[in-house]
Design a protein around this nucleic acid. Sequence first.
DNA 1: CGCAGATTTGACAGCCATCAAGGTACGTGG
DNA 2: CCACGTACCTTGATGGCTGTCAAATCTGCG
Lengths: 226, 226
Amino acid sequence: MNICSVLLCAASGEEISVCKELDWQDHKKIRAHKNIKSAGEQSDRVYVVCDGWAFRFVLLPDGRKQILSILIPGDVITPTRLFDENVRFSVQALTDMQYCGFASSILKAKLIADLAFLDAWANLLVAERHHHFGLLIDLGSRTADERIAHLILDLKLRLKRRGMMVERSFVFPLSQRLIAAATGLTPEHVSRVMGSFRREGLIENGKGFLRIVNLPGLQRIGGLNL
Amino acid sequence: MNICSVLLCAASGEEISVCKELDWQDHKKIRAHKNIKSAGEQSDRVYVVCDGWAFRFVLLPDGRKQILSILIPGDVITPTRLFDENVRFSVQALTDMQYCGFASSILKAKLIADLAFLDAWANLLVAERHHHFGLLIDLGSRTADERIAHLILDLKLRLKRRGMMVERSFVFPLSQRLIAAATGLTPEHVSRVMGSFRREGLIENGKGFLRIVNLPGLQRIGGLNL
DNA sequence: CGCAGATTTGACAGCCATCAAGGTACGTGG
DNA sequence: CCACGTACCTTGATGGCTGTCAAATCTGCG
């Protein structure tokens, strides 16, 4: 048993005991801004974020990139690798990070043998799907303020679940350029919106961290209210 | 063996032989514009579209609706129902339609017993995920023309795979209001874009059908080029 | 110190939303 | 058969949110 197995279990919502026999195959470090995977590459490993942040993205022919998801420690980087050899997106380290890989053949064998593990993996995919629906609503129907507020609230929730918040503050290594790529906006406009959030006393943020000062206010803007 | 089982197999990309023992539990008809499912409802059935079109959507508190996916015959309406009792979205019939339901307990038992079926189901979820990524790119990074052209090309491809195209024409029951809800635009703007497509000789469309006149031209606008 | 990248701010433009009006098709009821 | 209502599509005028372009400031880093 090791830290990566624990993370994998945590990510899939499973009891640690389920994963006792799982052991990591690789354990890698990578520097910020390096690609972990590029779209189209093949691979026989499923990777899990152990430390640091990363993001999934697609590079468009005209140079713009659309971010599909932001990955924090405990997230599975390529959960569909078990069923699809081709990865349809690229993954880049956002900070210096560590991640570890599990051979998909071993995971898949376990998936079949262990019903609880299958359920856990399915729940992981379902949760991601639900998350993507939220993103679609943001990009399709909501204003810049709403998208950014929602992004912040979403990250807050996920970090809190993993015990990575202190008070109302958390590590926040996202550059405004990245927030822009995630929300479908331009960096300039993100700067304007974040600036107004700060002036209105909703948030405080400095180098690498963010603090939610007025949670109800932020929720009034970015809550999905579904 | 019946038409619904065949459709379910087709949808999951499986050989028909795999599904021989599956039998439908319900077979329902429903009129256009009626809801098949509402978000939050629980259900113990997985439904498959037999005839007609439908769409998944989320209703926002301010009354706008965002369409998440358009469903054509052969599509599984609630593929995650096997792992998640709560459905996070609503589904509405777009035309008069027929659909049938399979008890999720039976499907799930088959999933565990039959490796090929598990793979097929996983492929279905992976394909949907990939499709949602494409939508995210549209809504996040692309113009109105590109989104609409892409929507048309995507439907064309899916209908072609199911053998539902004649020449370059296909049934196209989407109102412009619905295209707007799917692409994150307003009906007025959709009308302008479709009008310009028509004037430029890219498409022809009348009541309930659409014909792609200039496929390369449309692909130049709406191809993802990934 | 010098450079590259991130953030901020301002001016301006454009895409698309909003508001409004009119046309067409279709179903219903008289 | 015709009046009428409803829903959809079309078109125009106007406005606003956000993108684009540009430049200044700041920061970290070699």
